[in-house]
Design a protein around this nucleic acid. Structure first.
Lengths: 109, 109
DNA sequence: CTAATGCATTAGCAGCTACTAATGTACGGC
DNA sequence: GCCGTACATTAGTAGCTGCTAATGCATTAG
């Protein structure tokens, strides 16, 4: 049985469209500040900070403080629970190979 | 840009733990009725039907009516939006290969 | 036929959630 | 020192959501 807690957090965090959009922008940028994220979004800076807090608690982003600025970056391991879940319940993927992770280990050992 | 509608539906549908548990049971069973799903769950049969409706609308399950019984099965293509999304925003995956789908086509052309 | 089963649907509601606006906090420029 | 900036946090709220209980609707059993 797969551990429920991380996949719960990741799924729940990425379910909200605007929060997922924040995550996508963090991913596409190597590092990005809250101000930059706020510009180009239709919600308040406070809302952005709240979403970043959720993303951080879910292990999807990490922060680096530099003076007044806080730079956010994507946490590579954050989506691992999602990959694990898909390797178990991915149906149509599971029929092609039993475990997606083992395949990736072959590619990148 | 990735199409937002399907990934929104899939993410939102799988975000709820009990609904995701229903989906997982459907996946593990080749076909399963609502009554079987209700047994082994801590919610009402009505709630199960509501979750199945959501899953169906998200393209994650399909139904087959047989008399009074309705058998549900997993829809293989249902998780495709999730795979597409991960191939775009999967960070750590994207660094290993630009597109997960193209890799899979090589494995299963 | 009537009764029972399997499932879908509805109304109503408690609980959550994403938002704004305001405030707090800490740092940098002057 | 002071003010402005960057971000976090809070209180309050409107809207959504997942649940139960009840009911509706077919279908089968008797």
């Amino acid at each position: 049985m797969i551990e429920a807690a991380p996949i719960n957090a990741v799924m729940r965090t990425l379910a909200d469209p605007t929060r997922r959009a924040v995550f996508e922008r963090v991913v596409k940028s190597e590092e990005i500040t809250v101000l930059e994220l706020t510009r180009g979004s239709d919600v308040t800076q406070g809302a952005i900070s709240q979403h970043l807090k959720s993303l951080k608690q879910a292990g999807l982003v990490a922060e680096r403080r530099a003076g007044r600025n806080v730079f956010y970056r994507a946490e590579p391991k954050g989506l691992a629970p999602l990959v694990d879940w898909m390797s178990h319940y991915g149906v149509f993927w599971r029929r092609r190979f039993t475990n997606l992770r083992s395949l990736l280990k072959e590619i990148d050992p």
